[in-house]
Design a protein around this nucleic acid. Structure first.
Lengths: 295, 295
DNA sequence: GCTTCTCGTAAGCTGAGCTGATGCTCGACG
DNA sequence: CGTCGAGCATCAGCTCAGCTTACGAGAAGC
């Protein structure tokens, strides 16, 4: 019988690419991961890893095994969730990951709602880098996390994870010193999130679909700072609704026909976990009027 | 994350009823099983076992968890099977369980067939009590086993196991000193297998459906002995075709409109294991003409 | 009442699996 | 072309999960 702990390591390897990263994610030493994967190969009887250069790649048999591992882990997750259903009175820690603007705008109300219904639950919120959310969920460091996606940036579903329908949908705004459209900002300096983030891709694609490549001057992630810079005449930016609370004087927001959708993500199979579904309903209740769920 | 080894113990407990039996089946000490199940309950956070008198029963939550455990174990089995597919050249041991008459009649030819196609395979045949076959398969002592069922005795599908379509179907015969029907043997002494066996239930029900309760004189399992007793005038009996090779002088066999079907059984998920499917095809090829597969 | 069967607990030991150190190989860079 | 760093494998050593053995308690059967 294949060892599930080892299958988990293999799955992480498939996602993270290197043994060192797997070790980092699960807080082991790389040596331990290497040993366990060797043991897994031995019990499989088939080579699963291939040393290519100074990294390892999965063989086709390995990738196939990862597919099965995903199913097994999801099933175990589901079993755990049903077990939690049987418990009377939800209790214990619930580790929540979120991105900054949601943390400010939605999370407090959602936690209050959650505490009202399930006083035994101990929610623990962590602000996490959206890019690392998947790994943190899979590694078991988080139970549920808020993730977002943009109209222009298709969110590829991460294997091993599942998401809810959108919890809320915000319109995007062009933040500038005067009202206008994106196309009219062809020559203006832009303020964007650092490359590699979803926000960055979204803004670049918005400009491209308006027919130009943006001239990027500042790379800032925090929308409050972004708006301050816009107010200081340093450029223009795209900000989602949650980032527009109290715009500084001089900043004009023009609503655009673009949206950012926020969903809750969790390990596949954990969707029926009572604590997670309770949190998701609390989220839905806590959404400020005007930001309907959308689909 | 729930521990799969422990889930396996829980599943065995659901089937076998007592911790001692589980320990026996998996060659542990009862203490070890008890400890592991306690640990499982602790990580589940819900009571799974209930002490009732001097045994334990599963709580509803426990039974539900067993359902999930079955799925997980089947999935792991399937993953192992696909892994074996990736191996070039089937090799290694294949532990086969069988009941006596099949062992004599079918197994030798099937093994020859199997060896011709897969010389690397090392089949190991064990004659096992049909009642214990399920436990032996689940405990991993056997990989595949021949099991049979009778027209009159519905075989309830054992959870955690799967069976093939019938490999062959034998007619049943009435063995007596003179040709005749079952109904005509109302007053005769009967020779049957010991109570608790499928053969026994089958014979009793055959008599009942002919309108009488049989007078049982001898309880013998081995069909060669049974026929010898019939020849010695000790009674009449029902024997399947495979039990009728070389009937002793004086014994007359009358074919009945009743059948015994033989199938191969294995752990759920293992049906796609190449060694098992190879054995099953070898079985089909080795079936003597006249005993078509049936359905 | 005594025996027998069952499960649970305690104590002690063994081995799976972890860490940390070391060495090798491959790619990047001056 | 040599050096350096990143990444993986291997080895030695230690720790703890989990096994066995021993014992006790409670329930059924004679």
């Amino acid at each position: 019988m294949l060892d599930v702990r080892r299958l988990r390591l293999l799955r992480e390897l498939a996602h993270l690419g290197t043994i060192a990263a797997v070790a980092e994610a699960l807080s082991f030493s790389p040596s331990a991961v290497s040993q366990q994967l060797s043991a897994l190969e031995k019990e499989a009887g088939v080579p699963l890893l291939e040393r290519t250069g100074r990294r390892v790649t999965l063989t086709p048999a390995g990738r196939n095994l990862v597919r099965h591992a995903e199913s097994v882990l999801a099933l175990l997750e589901q079993a755990g969730a049903e077990l939690a259903h049987a418990k009377r009175g939800l209790a214990g820690p619930l580790r929540i990951g979120t991105y900054p603007s949601a943390a400010r705008a939605i999370i407090p109300a959602a936690l209050a709602e959650l505490a009202a219904w399930h006083p035994g639950l101990e929610p623990m919120v962590t602000e996490v880098d959206p890019a690392a959310v998947g790994a943190a969920l899979r590694a078991g460091e988080l139970d549920v996390a808020l993730v977002h996606e943009y109209d222009l940036v298709p969110a590829d579903p991460e294997p091993g994870l599942a998401v809810t329908r959108p919890v809320f949908t915000e319109p995007m705004y062009l933040a500038a010193r005067h009202p206008g459209t994106v196309a009219e900002q062809r020559g203006a300096p832009w303020i964007m999130s650092p490359p590699g983030t979803l926000c960055h891709s979204m803004a670049v694609r918005a400009c491209e679909s308006a027919g130009f490549a943006p001239r990027i001057r500042h790379q800032i992630d925090d929308f409050t700072t972004v708006l301050a810079l816009v107010g200081a005449g340093q450029g223009v930016a795209l900000v989602p609704h949650l980032g527009t609370a109290e715009p500084p004087p001089g900043v004009v927001l023009t609503r655009l026909p673009m949206y950012r959708r926020t969903r809750a993500a969790f390990r596949a199979g954990a969707g029926s976990h009572p604590a997670i579904s309770a949190f998701v309903s609390a989220l839905h209740t806590a959404v400020p009027p005007g930001l309907g769920g959308g689909s």
